[in-house]
Amino acid sequence: MKNDVIMEMKNLSVGYEDRVVVGGVDAVLYRGEILVLMGPNGAGKSTLLKTISGQLLPISGEVSLMGGSVFSMKPMERARHMSLLLTGQRMAEMMTCYDVVSMGRYPYTGRLGILSEDDKTVVAEAMERLDIAKLADKSFDKISDGQRQRVLLARALAQKPGVLMLDEPASHLDIKYQLELVEILRSLAGDGLSVIMSMHELLMVKKCANRLLCISEGRAEPVEDVQSFFDDGSVERLFDIPVGSL
């Protein structure tokens, strides 16, 4: 089980128009692991995430997701295999948390988006999994940042994805909620969900990453041993700061 490849990037080059931001990426994502994209600002973490989530076309190369190609899949089909969670999205007012989570069923519902009994069960399960059942009728704009993060994660789970992608999920959270988020992600990975995310908070990365993908100067280097990466000065070299300054 543990060594199933869920997603694979083959000689992938990402960027805009003809400008390559990160090139020649070869990486795999296994079932139930947390892979963290690390690197300085502007190195191309977001561009890579946008590309492997199918939001941006690659310059060259291929990304396979559960056997199919991310780029030739129909958007709705892709959304059943992966959830993308971006922070700082502007949301409309007057939506309950239940409304927000149920939107995760979008790729499964019919023409008018009406939830079937099965859809409702999935939504309920996702909310229970993240312990937010009591928030169902609460307005999404009247809950705390940590609760909001949980609601959005529940929405992502309601998509029933194999891969969860997150772009800087901890950046707006204080340390308490960051720890909580890391706990949740570890427990979801324990259920067999594969997580791939960009993250700046080194402490959190150390706590949850199974493997890293370090992005700098247009290249992506996989790191298998997270602990020694933090211990042997590699992390300082990645961010171009003196070894030992952390």
Binding site: M76, A79, L86, Q89, R90, M103, P107, G113, R155
Partner: peptide, 23 residues
């Protein structure tokens, strides 16, 4: 009225709408 479904996804942000398959 036929746009009600994509509209509801769009209410949760353009990128979200795109990620769940809205054109």
């Amino acid at each position: 009225f036929l746009q009600a479904k994509p509209m509801s996804a769009y209410q949760q942000g353009e990128s979200f709408a795109k990620s769940v398959g809205v054109d």
